[in-house]
Nucleic acid binder design. Structure first.
Lengths: 347, 347
DNA sequence: GACCATCATCGATACGCATCGACCACCAGG
DNA sequence: CCTGGTGGTCGATGCGTATCGATGATGGTC
């Protein structure tokens, strides 16, 4: 026999096809005895339920589309952990992940939803105003957005709390005695893409600096090559001097270059200059010197995104996410070697 | 009306449902007039053919599974371009990409194929002996392997020609006057994973060095941190001296560290020491100094993998890939600043 | 002992499309 | 005028599952 169907299983188990189906879905009570016979038959035939038939009859595919920022000129670095975590999160709910690349744009989403290839969408790297959002919202399937658009329009959004992270970083710098903070901004390409986490981070830093009464020198944008970073440091050190200066580096990729540039001019991070970077804890610990960092763990965001998605998909799992809710994942600052308490603050 | 079906389209166009289907698939001739009416109706209703129904009736899903080395501790860096290129290659053939993460292992493949979620598989990062291969080969669907296993067993394999790349790199070093070549190996973790491109590369270098009568000093394994690389350089320079030494660095991630380490000890790459690295052309050109490199462009491999896949999927597209064929994509060596012709070779 | 729940199972049907055989109209050749 | 095509369309059927209503069996109640 070619590939076994649920009817074959039924015959072998001596039950009807519908009983096999109920064993599979658990939507009606099945006696222990019958269940065992059916399951044995399935094992014996190596039966796999046909996904197409299931989708057709059951109106759900158990596949989720991921709109990933591939193809475009993305800082590709960071997205892999997102994808990976989302994929395994979906698997825990017996769902699969279909990749939709960004070059397909909004019509890619319309296609996979229209054809009922997917039951739901996760849209990554959403910028401040993103044409995909309006389309996604009108598709009639659950959508989770990773990023914080200006106008969420009914779509639940999840992202890291960059503003809060920036504030915590400023706190840390002030804690170790800094009286001025310089912010080495994101590269122009990132800013152009209008991903507003940039402005959220900068805004958070500014607000906190103002509250604490320390000066904030934003330097932006900064490319990742050595020359740009040297130029940025020149500017910063010219204005603020070395004394009491804290550096805030939200651009993960720039971190190693900044460290090198500082040392090249005789400033030891942690001793002569304090520095807080934005990166994962793993990267921070592996760095030399170990970085004090604002941890932005993509896995946290992905996990929550998956949870939110299934609350939408199976409302029994708990209160569905309210429309348009923005969930910000709190960051964490970990002190390592690049910030050290210097002068004892007035106790 | 909820979502339109082909029957709705048929009614609106005044034809039968089967005619709509033939317009869609092109498997029977349709008059110009009828085709236009049907297409208009589809547009008007924003009709999308239901993928589940298509799969059920047509025995094909137009989805390809990608077994990606996610989840494991991979040198995650390199795989994104593969995934991206494969995804868009599939889209050009109106197919989609379903991600299967490596943690699911062989049973993940069995699942997506057994349930007929996918029509075919691409298996990435296949090592010398990979348990997934035997399973994949028995699944009864087209499979393309990226990597070169010891025992391809009927499966078409595609990979970069690391051996040839190594030989070309040795050639280049000898061309610019090197009389000894040191090979800074891969890190232990890469070697442990038994990805045999490591040994293919080393083997290729050894063979060519022997042919040319130059000494080859393999130093392995080399981690990517500065200390390990310094130790490796100590060993190499101790044995071979600076004079006439060429460095061969197959580990992309180690390249910047090696460059820095060399300069730290007063050796200018390209002048005092020659160096050929393995990386993409883009990375090589962006490096400072610009690297002479063996280009291993993942996109080439992905493209060929997709082509081979569709030759298997639609035999009309050309001769199907012969079973067990191993296709090696030739690399290219580009001379940049880290190799410069030194003493004029005897003309 | 007749009656009604409850539980477990069965039969039939629908899901939306691809495909096969049949059919019709039309035209060329004899 | 009849025959043999051929290009174009239609009806009917099947793909494998989920689901609904119905049925039989079982046990408890008055």
């Amino acid at each position: 026999m070619a590939v076994p169907t649920s009817r074959d299983v039924a015959k072998l188990a001596g039950v009807s096809q519908s009983t096999v189906s109920y064993v599979l879905t658990g939507k009606r009570p099945i006696s222990e005895e019958t269940r065992r016979r059916v399951e044995d038959a399935m094992t014996q035939l190596t039966f796999h339920p046909n996904a197409g038939a299931r989708a057709l009859a059951g109106q759900r595919t158990r596949v989720v589309g991921l709109m990933a920022p591939f193809g475009a000129s993305t800082h590709q670095q960071g997205i892999l952990p997102f994808v990976e975590t989302i994929a395994s999160g979906l698997r825990e709910h017996d769902h699969d992940l279909l990749l939709v690349t960004a070059d397909e744009g909004a019509e890619g989403m319309a296609r996979v939803v229209g054809r009922r290839i997917v039951d739901a969408l996760v849209v990554m790297e959403v910028g401040a105003r993103d044409e995909r959002l309006a389309v996604a919202a009108g598709l009639g399937v659950p959508v989770i957005v990773i990023g914080v658009p200006e106008e969420p329009g009914d779509l639940p959004c999840i992202d890291l709390d960059f503003a809060h992270g920036a504030a915590l970083a400023v706190d840390e710098l002030v804690d170790v005695g800094c009286t001025a903070v310089a912010l080495l901004g994101y590269s122009a390409v990132t800013t152009q893409r209008d991903l507003n986490y940039v402005s959220r981070f900068i805004g958070g830093a500014e607000r906190r600096a103002a509250e604490l009464g320390v000066t904030l020198h934003p330097v932006s944008p900064v490319e990742v090559d050595r020359a740009s970073i040297d130029a940025a440091l020149d500017a910063v050190l010219g204005v603020a001097g070395g004394e009491g200066l804290g550096l805030l580096v939200p651009n993960t990729e720039a971190l190693p270059v900044v460290l090198r540039a500082l040392r090249a001019r005789g400033l030891e991070p942690g001793a002569d200059v304090s520095l807080v970077g934005v990166c994962t804890d793993a990267e921070a610990a592996a760095s030399e010197p170990a970085l004090t960092n604002v941890s932005l763990e993509p896995r946290d965001v992905s996990r929550r995104a998956v949870e939110a998605l299934f609350r939408l998909l199976d409302p029994e799992l708990g209160a569905p996410v309210p429309d348009g809710a923005v969930e910000l994942v709190p960051p964490r600052v970990t002190r390592r070697d690049t910030t050290r308490p210097a002068r004892r603050p007035a106790a």
